[in-house]
Structures are given as C-alpha cells and as structure tokens.
Design a protein around this nucleic acid. Sequence first.
RNA 1: GGCCCUAUCGUCUAGUGGUUAGGACAACAGGUUUUCAAUCUGUCAACCCGGGUUCGAUCCCCGGUAGGGUCACCA
Length: 444
Amino acid sequence: MDTKNTNQKIVVRIPPSPTGFFHIGRARTALFNYLFAKKVGGEIVFRIEDTDKERSKKEYEEDIIKSLKWLDITYDSGPFRQSERGNVYSKYVKMMLENGTAYLSQETEGQNKEVIRFKNPNKTIIFNDLIRGDISIETKDLEDFVIARNINDPLYHLTVVVDDFEMGVTHVIRGDDGIANTPRQILIAEAIGAPRPVYAHVPLILAADKSKMSARHGAVSLRDFRSAGYLPEAMVNFLALLGFNPGGDRELYSLAELVDVFDLARVQKGGAVFNIEKLDWFNKEYMKLLSEEKRNEEIYNRLKNHGEAEKMSKKAYSIIFEHISKWGDIDTMLGAGEWNYFFERPKYEVSLLSWKNSSLENSKKHLEWIKNTLESSNKESFGSVEKIKSLIFDYATQEGRGDVLWPLRVALSGKEKSPDPFTLLYILGKQESISRIDNALKIL
RNA sequence: GGCCCUAUCGUCUAGUGGUUAGGACAACAGGUUUUCAAUCUGUCAACCCGGGUUCGAUCCCCGGUAGGGUCACCA
C-alpha cells in the first residue's frame, strides 16, 4: 500500500498555520525539524495549513516565509497550501465514508446540521515518542470527533494525516501541545491505511510565569524580534539551546554547527522559560563578530530613521555600539535623549559641575586650565583619544582626577552618565569642546 | 475536573549509584588611570517531598506535591 517510503528516506515537515505572525515557539519547532533533517540527510516539506478560511491571511503567510528565510531555515519542497488540496482530502473523506471509518452525523447543535464524524474504535493507543518514550492514551474519551464539516470542507486532524501520508512524512516533530492530538491522528492514519510516523514532542517555550508563551506576554512573533534589531544567528543559537543542549559548556553555535551536534534524544523534556536577557547576551556576542563596516552601516541606518544620521559624528559610532545589545536599542536611547550631547549643546544644573565634595570654584579653576590648554594645543593633539588624554591627564592626576575630569565631562555632556571626557573631546572636536567649556565657565 | 506530560541555582542547563554537583545569563562585590557602558576577577545561588532498592542515592522504583499541556464544526 505504501510505496512512497520504501527507500527509507526521512522526511519531516514544517506546517505553520497563517492565522497570525510567525510565533517564536513555532520558529523553534521549525528549527528542530531543520536540525534533525539536516543531521540525518532527510528532507523538509513546508506546508501552509490554511484550512481555516476565516482566520488565514496572506499577510501572515508572507510573514512566515520571510521569517524562515531570515533564520536561514530552508526546505526542500513547498510551500504547499492545504487550501489548494481540497480534492485530495475529499477523496479520503469519501473513502472513509465508504469503508465505515467515518459517518454522516445529524447535529442538533452547531452551525451545520450535518457533519462528518470519525467512527472511534475506542481503543488504547500506545505510541513511542522520541523525546518522552512510550505514551499511552485511551481514545474513548475522544468520542466520535468531527473530521470535516462536509465532504469538501475538511478539518485539521484529517488534513494533517492525509498530507503527512501523501507527502511521505516519516517524522513528526512538533510542540508539546500536540501530544493530545496524536491519538486522534493515529486513529485516522490507521483508518486510511497510512503508516504511523515517528513522533517527537518538543517542550514548550514558557513565559516567566511558566505558562505557555502567548501574546499577552509581550513580544512573541519573530517579526517583533526582527524589528527590534536582533541578529538571526543569535536567535537561532538562543532558540536551539532553549530545550536542547549537546552537553558540555559551550554556548555559541552557528546553524551549521548545531546541525552537527543535534540529537533529538538530548532535547529536554520539560518546558523552558524564555529569558530575554540571555537572548540579548547572545545577540551582543554575535554583534561583536560583525565587521566594523557592517556595524557602522547598521548604526547609520538606525540614526537615519530618526533623522539624526548627519548630525552625529562617525567618531561616536564605537561609543554607540558599546552601549547597545541589539540595533533597536539605538531607537530607544535616541528616543530617551541619551545621546543628545552628541549633536546639541547640553543643558544642566550648575551644581552638577562639582565633583562630590569639591567646590564650584575648583571646577571653574580646572575648566579654565583645560580651556587654555586646549586653545593653545595644535590640531595634531585632537587626532586621537590618547593624544587628547596626554594633554590633560597629568594635570588631572596632580589636581585630583575626579575634581578635574568630572566637571569637564559634565561641561561636555551635561549628564551624570556618559563616555569619558577624552572620548567626548575627541568626538566633539576642538572648537565645539572649547565653546561648551566656555558655556560652563559662564554659568559658574 | 478527566486525560497526558514534566521536575538540578532566580533563568537556560551539564553531570554521576560514591563529585568540593560544573558552565552560561542575571544579581552582587572589587579591579580596570572620575560616572555609565564594555572588559577582567571574585561572590551568592540548586539536586521538590516521602518511602523503597542499595554499603551508599540528586541519579533506579513507587507514592505524594507542585507546575504545565489538552479536552472545538481552531490549528
């Protein structure tokens, strides 16, 4: 009966439903399918499960495709759309109606007066799960469940089983929440004479409160993370190690390296709490691997979106880079005015100019010294942070570093927290720096 | 509630019938030529409980407890 699988080719599937933007949990399940298939030299079928005409949208389908591409998860065939495979399903429904494994049921409630129900044999199903071992379920609790609204309008359980059969799927790797669906699908598979695939149920991604991660917990679609400026390599690495670990202390793995070390038997059984701080750490690690050109390009583009790109000196880029863990942080920092001192004169209270217990008179004295020194310095001295530092540092050491450096930094940035004054001097340039010091002197 | 699944630091996890139970994130402390960041070093921090098996259980078995998932003419 089954001639498709005689060559033992391993086939997995990525079967999202386009009823929302691609969910992070779905992304991880897709990733596990990918890693498993690549590891064993199998194939990946990509299938859009859009039998729910009400909720399925093209926009979501496009988002799913884009998301997979972003993560670099490729597939060997598809996308297939269940909405385009009506004939296939009605063929099987007919067959089941004829062989008595399904029947037309008169309904007293619901939208349709007649639906097609599966004739439940009420038996015990025991299936082996690659991650959890044997699972046993009494199917009589499932009753005669509905498999189609009518012969041309099949429901999820039927379409999944038919497609997995027709597409030669050998391994079903899906989320934990699919366990409850498994006995129904095994029953249908038996009814249509399809072989039973191997199952593997991956633990769920949990929110901080340990419940299934959903929209009410904030960002859950891959799209959100993409626009927040996370790197796909970081996302892949983070997601893979959420519920899987190859053993040992290593944390950083590329997609290809993950394929090498992947093993379903090493997938965790319990759910894993999503920890965005760890994601941020991964992301920063991958950001550090980027070339300077690439970093500057990203920073420039983000600044440009805010209309600040031309006002911000390129010399400030390395400082910006140090302070972010994802590109979207640039938007946040800019929005909060954190970096305003890079392109506009700072405003601040006079009192901020004095360091700890030191006096404003002292600050004034030191700033005057610095001003004179800078004014008499040649252009060469502003060539690097190191050179600027050599102009002032000995004086600062002698007079008290905090006493000298703090007011200088405040004069330049107007903030309690900012890069060091030498870097500020370098970025701002001689003329602008002197004029800011002048402003400080005026209010002192 | 029925059924199913799960249980090592706050979080992600490694690990073993005998270990000082390891790493990472976070937190905290200190260094790094003032602050923030980055970085370095260090500190804090876990085997859910009760039985059983065993010379010995975090590890094996049973029970409990807790948490989660699922119970559609959604997928």
